[in-house]
Computed example of a mutant assay.
Amino acid sequence: MFIFGKYLSILLKAQMQYRVSFLLLSFGQFFVPFSVFAGLYFLFEQFGQIKGWSFYEVGLCFAIIHMAFAISECFGRGFDSFSQLVASGDFDRLLVRPRSTVLQVLGSKFEFTRIGRLLQSLTVLIIVLVHIEIDWTIAKVITMMLMVVSGVFIFVGIFILAATLCFWTIQAIEVANIFTDGGREIAQYPLDIYKKWVTRFFTFVIPFATTNYIPLNYLLGKTDSSDLFYVFIPLAGILFILPCLLIWHYGVKHYRSTGS
């Protein structure tokens, strides 16, 4: 963790060398996602509700998944741009260092400008919480925090899986965006509005349901089960990182240098 902190410090200082550029990029990251939220607003302005979900209830789902995506893009960007390390042959240098390749790839790139997207999501979260009546308990507060953490781990896990493919394809393949950007777009709505196969896929394969749909029902008082069950549901999303890391280590063992 000390080394990870050093990575953070060094890359933050590097990006802050161009402060105007950093502020403008952060400013853009704040306002660009508002166009997506505006589309959500106009959708509900036209139809009123979607399968019993109100605008502010879906807004809560939207805010949580976008917060998770912003954090994962900030800290997991090294895996998202991993193909550059493979194509240039720079990954070979990481292999001879006496530290985990996961740590080194994570520390190779941070996108601190994503703080703008995070602030936008927090703004949406505050707006929707003001308009939703939730009977808050300690269990519900913990659940909502774990929902964000769960989303972060799922997105980073997808970044890791996409990066692992680069050991065989060298360049990043666009199909991975189906599960990163596409996963974010799907998960910003409650999963029960989709076809059953889509809901099942994003519950049992890529467990976005543990980030939004299942615990969201609990926060809104739409369930009757034990509080502890829903508090621990987001942990399934956090555990998603484990098979992703196993696949990553399998890819590392079978890596052959590009010869750059």
Rank of each mutant, 00 (worst) to 15 (best):
S150W: 01
S9T: 09
R117A: 15
D135I: 05
W53H: 08
F55D: 12
F110V: 05
F22S: 10
D192S: 08
V36K: 06
E45K: 10
K51P: 06
I214Y: 12
C74L: 13
L95T: 12
A70M: 03
Q188H: 03
G78I: 01
V58H: 00
T210K: 03
G28Q: 05
Y56I: 06
R77C: 04
H254P: 11
W136V: 09
S83V: 05
P243W: 07
F37R: 04
F55Y: 15
N177Q: 14
F204R: 09
T258L: 06
A163G: 12
V205W: 01
K196S: 13
Y56C: 04
F204W: 15
T203H: 07
L24N: 02
D92T: 05
P234Y: 01
V148Y: 00
S257M: 08
F47T: 12
L146K: 08
I238S: 00
F208K: 13
F75N: 04
V86F: 01
T137S: 15
P33C: 01
F75V: 07
I132T: 13
F204E: 10
D135V: 09
F155W: 05
L60S: 01
Y213Q: 14
L40C: 06
L146V: 06
G39Y: 02
V130P: 00
R256M: 11
I233Q: 05
V156A: 04
A162F: 01
F91V: 15
L239G: 04
G107Y: 03
F201K: 05
V175I: 15
I193L: 01
K253M: 09
K109V: 11
I142Y: 03
T180Q: 12
E45R: 09
F34M: 15
L95H: 10
T203G: 11
F69L: 11
K109L: 14
V231C: 09
F44E: 12
K222I: 03
T164L: 02
D227V: 08
I160W: 02
R200Y: 13
V141C: 06
M144S: 13
Q84F: 07
L129I: 06
L106V: 05
F75L: 14
G107S: 11
L40E: 08
A172V: 05
V105C: 07
